[in-house]
Design a protein around this nucleic acid. Sequence first.
DNA 1: CGATCACGC
DNA 2: GCGTGATCG
Length: 405
Amino acid sequence: MYPVLADIEIPLAEVLSSMEIEGIRLDAAALHSFGEELLPKIDGLAGEIYAAAGHEFNIGSPKQLSVVLFEELGLPAGKKRKTGYSTDADTLEALRDKHQIIPLIFEYRTLTKLYNTYVRGLEAAVSPDGRMHTTFKQTETRTGRISSAEPNIQNIPVRTEIGRNFRKFFVADEGNLLADADYSQIELRVLAHLSGDKAMIKTFCEGGDIHTETAASVLGLPPEWITPEQRRSAKAVNFGIVYGIGAFSLAKDINVSVAEAKRYIDDYLTHYSGVREYMDKVTKSAEKDGWAVTMFGRRRFIPEILSTNKTVKALGKRIAMNTPIQGTAADIIKIAMVRVYRRLKAELPEARLILQVHDELIVEAPEEKAAQAARILTEEMQGAVKLAVPLTADAKEGRSWYEAH
DNA sequence: CGATCACGC
DNA sequence: GCGTGATCG
């Protein structure tokens, strides 16, 4: 049988089933009162927006909003959509200082998103046992990741402080704690390993900050000279390489011209020449075979790479470059999950693996056993596979997901 | 149900 | 890049 199937997916099925059945406790009362605090704020913002527009309208309708912004208020329109002018975040960001209504729209969107998707969505998903039991889908993604639905616990906010609050409502049961461990930069470490790039391997082996080191080596400066701005750009390029976004999207992400973004990527690949050779190798092999493959033999077919349409073919190439990275990272955490599950069963049966969020695992354990659970998590995650670079996972314990992460 | 927007990794 | 989900029309 195929190793990915026999050694990873089939053993994993039992682990996922157990995680779904266990679920995670939700503090429904606290979630509800958080929602009750959001509602008057949303109301107040709507009032301010109507006042700024001069009349009421449906702020949630991009079509109506574009009429207000670009026809009535006369703001400069940007990208055209099928149904009108775009009102997405990038477009509004460019207009932020042009009219008082713009920041209000941003805040309104943030709060309604939090209320509709997370307050109402999560409230609807609490079971009679006071816990949420997501569905982990094992065969939904093209890269080999698992996905989560009803509720999706893999897109709970973390970036903004107000959104991060939701993690306070995911709590350990009485007398228990959550132990949370996440891989540090797993995709870039996988890239360093798969490509064998000397400079990237060296950075990870010496334990430096990868984004600062990237900026330093690409720009030919000492790491201590790297400005926050230079680090941000390097981070965006690393991000782009890992996700296979290409110059066009990178340009959008860091607000530079496409030509500049191309140059960033080219400079990057000149300094990480092993990565360039690796990217050439995987795109060539995808063109020849029609698929990309992960370190453990998981295949993804890429018909796009034979397209005569330039844009589609370029997409095929990015898929060929990205899939081995994202897919190998998915393989690795799956291996770790099976190992954590087995070890807990054997050594710490009071503890339960309950959540996976792509590069992060969460175990619920009795207070006095949480440190041991965290140790098992770290050991099995770090030891899941031997790479040319260290694979590190940082663990933390807490009463809630907010505290433990 | 497609389009648009926004949250995560 | 890969997902899920809300709302609109």
